[in-house]
Design a protein around this nucleic acid. Structure first.
Lengths: 108, 108
DNA sequence: CGGACGTATAACTCGATGGTTATGGGATGA
DNA sequence: TCATCCCATAACCATCGAGTTATACGTCCG
């Protein structure tokens, strides 16, 4: 619930396998570990570990049903990422308003 | 110029030291390696290496002036990040429109 | 109860990477 | 020219993390 720093989000999403798992949960909705493992290209323990990292980052939630565990994406956790990115772009635009900097850019 | 995949961007920005360098260039504009090193908390070679990685990712550009090198941020390179993030959020909202999925969510 | 199934954890290996010190190499200036 | 400065590269080291196999734990079913 508490918004996490962009640092954990960047680190968590930097791994392609892990990011692919998150993407699949975003696109296709809730899925079990088995279903995710079937097309992940890595072993089941690897998938479980990645899902744990995603959960620690607040990007997914898990739901236990019998002997299987369903995971679903929580894309709201991406908010700090959007904030950080638009803030960086914002600084850039603000500096664009600075005439001196603008001129310095133009003669490049 | 060609838009790079989010993969390289995530990996490049996952390191805190490197991301801090990029943030400073976004906030404060063009700076030399020496100026960046002074407050980076790591050695000058480490800073140079980080700047090289940022350049390879298209996030910064360098300009040689005498014996010093000026780096500046290219926040436009963040576009794929924004795209990816909003796309993930978009999938989530679209799935929310699916009545079946909505009902499945409601009885949880 | 006992075996098969689904998932998580343990223990380990190994390659990637971020840090360091040492050095190279071009630019500046006495 | 020679010393100094700024930055990049080289070479090396240590840590981290993603993958593996093996195993433990809980659930379903016969």
């Amino acid at each position: 619930m508490t918004p996490l720093s962009p640092d954990l989000l960047f680190k968590t999403l930097a791994d392609p396998t892990r990011r692919a798992l998150f993407e699949r949960l975003c696109r296709e909705g809730e899925q079990t570990v088995g279903a995710l493992t079937a097309r992940a290209g890595v072993s089941q323990p690897a998938v479980s570990k990645h899902l744990g990292v995603l959960r620690d980052a607040g990007l997914v939630s898990d739901r236990h049903e019998g002997r299987q565990t369903h995971y679903r994406a929580l894309p709201g956790a991406l908010a700090p990422l959007l904030d950080w990115t638009s803030q960086m772009a914002g600084f850039w635009e603000r500096r664009f308003d600075d005439l001196e900097d603008l001129l310095k850019r133009m003669d490049q």
